[in-house]
Simulated scan of single mutants.
Amino acid sequence: MKWKIFIAVVMLTTVMFSQQDTAQDSLRVINRLMYNNQSKLTIGGYVQIDYNEPDGGKTGNLDVHRLVMLFGYNFSDRVSFLTEIEIEHVKEIYVEQAFVNYSFSTAFNLRGGLMLVPMGYVNEYHEPPVFFGTERPGLDKYVVPTTWRELGVGATGNLQDLSLKYQAYIFNGFISYKDGEGTLRGIDGLRKGRQKGAESVIHNPNLSVKFDYYGILGLKLGVAGYFGETQSDDPSVENSTVGVSMLGLNASYLYRDLTLRGQYVHTNLSGTEAYNNLTGKDLGSKIEGFYLEAGYNFLPLIDKNTTKQLSLFSRYEAYNTHAETAGDLDINDAYDRNNITLGLDFKIAPGVVVKADYQWFNDAVQGTNPDNQFNAGVGVMF
Rank of each mutant, 00 (worst) to 15 (best):
L249S: 12
E124L: 09
K178D: 10
N276V: 06
R111V: 06
G284F: 00
R337Q: 15
D257P: 08
D233A: 09
I49N: 08
V209Q: 05
F382P: 00
A294E: 08
R194D: 05
G154E: 04
S252L: 12
V354T: 09
Y255V: 12
Y358V: 02
T183R: 02
Y214F: 08
T368F: 12
F346A: 12
R28T: 14
L278S: 11
T42Q: 09
Y255W: 15
K210T: 04
G367V: 12
G243E: 14
A334E: 14
V201G: 03
G295N: 07
S245I: 07
T83V: 11
Q97A: 10
V15K: 10
R194H: 12
L269T: 04
K91P: 10
Y142E: 11
V153L: 10
N239S: 13
K58F: 06
Q195Y: 04
L221D: 09
S252H: 09
L159C: 12
S314Y: 03
G193C: 05
I85V: 14
D63E: 13
R261D: 11
S270K: 07
D282C: 06
P370R: 08
Y264S: 07
R315T: 02
L184D: 01
P235D: 14
F290T: 06
T230V: 13
Q167L: 03
G262V: 10
D140P: 05
P118V: 05
V122H: 01
N369S: 13
K286W: 03
V353C: 05
G152L: 07
G222I: 00
F99G: 02
A8L: 08
L221P: 03
S252D: 14
Y73Q: 08
N61E: 14
